[in-house]
């Protein structure tokens, strides 16, 4: 995985100071970062902008981390969520959201570990997205359209999936 790929990261944590500094570090690392301070805010932001990876704190007032990542997944099905959980809460976290989250990380986070996990989650996202893209392209070919029809449909797909 080439690091220079533009990985769009959505951060969600009610601890604002933490996000302020975490965003700065991740930006410098080369990520595109958007910081949000609640699940509700994140869902709003995700309606307008596409992200590759979300980093969600489990324990937040209002919409909690599990709920948030489920909602995000509905809006952006390929988005991979990394859920941050405190010690002891991990069991409940696993129960309620094992299928949906890419990974659970124990808080306090180790920065390097987080960066690696974001990159892995991004690869997973791309992989899933491309698999789905290929599937749909095949579908288009099977549909029996003419060459021009196929080209048009595939280009449209490329746009949807952000694949050049």
């Amino acid at each position: 995985m080439e690091e220079k790929a533009d990985i769009r990261v959505l951060l969600i944590d009610d601890e604002e100071t933490l996000l302020e500094y975490l965003s700065k570090r991740l930006l410098r690392e080369g990520f595109t970062v958007k910081a949000t301070f609640s699940g509700e805010e994140a869902v709003e932001v995700a309606a307008d902008d596409n992200f590759d990876v979300a980093v969600v704190d489990l324990k937040m007032p209002g919409m909690d981390g599990v709920e948030t990542q489920k909602k995000l997944k509905k809006i952006q099905p390929f988005l991979q969520s990394i859920v941050l959980t405190g010690h002891g809460a991990i069991d409940t976290a696993l129960e309620s959201g094992r299928q949906d989250a890419y990974k659970y990380l124990l808080k306090p986070i180790e920065y390097d570990n987080l960066v690696d996990t974001i990159k892995e989650a991004y690869e997973k996202k791309v992989e899933l997205q491309q698999a789905k893209f290929r599937e749909e392209v095949e579908e288009i070919y099977r549909s029996g359209r003419g060459a021009r029809g196929i080209k048009k449909a595939v280009n449209k797909l490329r746009k949807i999936y952000g694949i050049d």
């Binding site: 601890e15 500094y21 975490l22 570090r25 808080k107 306090p108 920065y111």
Partner: peptide
Amino acid sequence: AVIGEISG
């Protein structure tokens, strides 16, 4: 955790 992040 915040202090850790700031020092980073």
